[in-house]
Computed example of a mutant assay.
Amino acid sequence: MQLNPRFGPHLRLIGMAVLWGASWPAGRIIAQSMPPLAGASLRFLLAALVLIPWLYWAGGLQQLKNWSAQRWLGMAAAGATGVLGYAAFFLSGLQHLPAGKAALVITLNPVMTLLMAAWIFKERLNTIIATGMALAIAGAVVVLSHGQPATLLQGGMGVGELLILGCVVCWVLYTLIGRWMLTGVDALSTTTVTSTIGACMLLAASLVVEGPSAMASAVHSGTTAWIALLFLAFGATALAYAWYFDGVKALGAGAASGYITLVPLFGVLISAYLLGETIDIPMLLGGAMAITGTAIMHWGRARH
Results as ranks from 00 to 15, higher is better:
292 T>G: 02
11 L>K: 06
223 T>M: 14
276 G>L: 06
248 V>E: 11
272 A>R: 01
104 L>V: 07
75 M>W: 00
21 G>N: 04
93 G>E: 02
227 I>R: 03
214 A>P: 13
1 M>P: 06
221 S>T: 09
136 A>C: 14
282 P>F: 02
179 R>V: 12
201 M>C: 11
284 L>H: 04
51 L>K: 10
46 L>P: 11
247 G>W: 08
161 E>I: 07
27 G>C: 05
223 T>Q: 14
285 L>W: 12
275 L>A: 00
264 P>E: 11
29 I>P: 04
242 A>V: 06
182 L>E: 07
82 G>P: 01
115 L>C: 12
248 V>M: 15
38 A>R: 05
258 G>F: 05
168 V>M: 01
139 G>T: 01
146 H>M: 09
132 G>R: 05
91 L>F: 14
56 Y>N: 14
237 T>K: 07
104 L>Y: 04
247 G>P: 09
74 G>D: 10
116 M>I: 14
9 P>S: 08
149 P>R: 05
129 I>M: 15
47 A>D: 11
230 L>C: 06
152 L>K: 03
188 L>P: 03
139 G>C: 01
226 W>N: 02
219 V>K: 00
191 T>R: 09
170 C>P: 00
83 V>S: 10
148 Q>C: 11
184 G>C: 07
303 R>E: 13
148 Q>L: 13
13 L>W: 09
218 A>V: 04
70 Q>S: 11
288 A>H: 05
289 M>P: 05
128 I>T: 14
32 Q>K: 07
204 A>I: 15
69 A>Y: 09
253 A>D: 13
199 A>Q: 12
109 N>S: 11
240 A>C: 10
246 D>S: 14
49 L>H: 10
111 V>L: 14
223 T>D: 11
245 F>K: 12
5 P>T: 08
131 T>A: 15
129 I>F: 04
296 I>R: 06
252 G>F: 15
219 V>G: 01
115 L>W: 08
105 V>Y: 06
30 I>V: 10
173 L>Y: 07
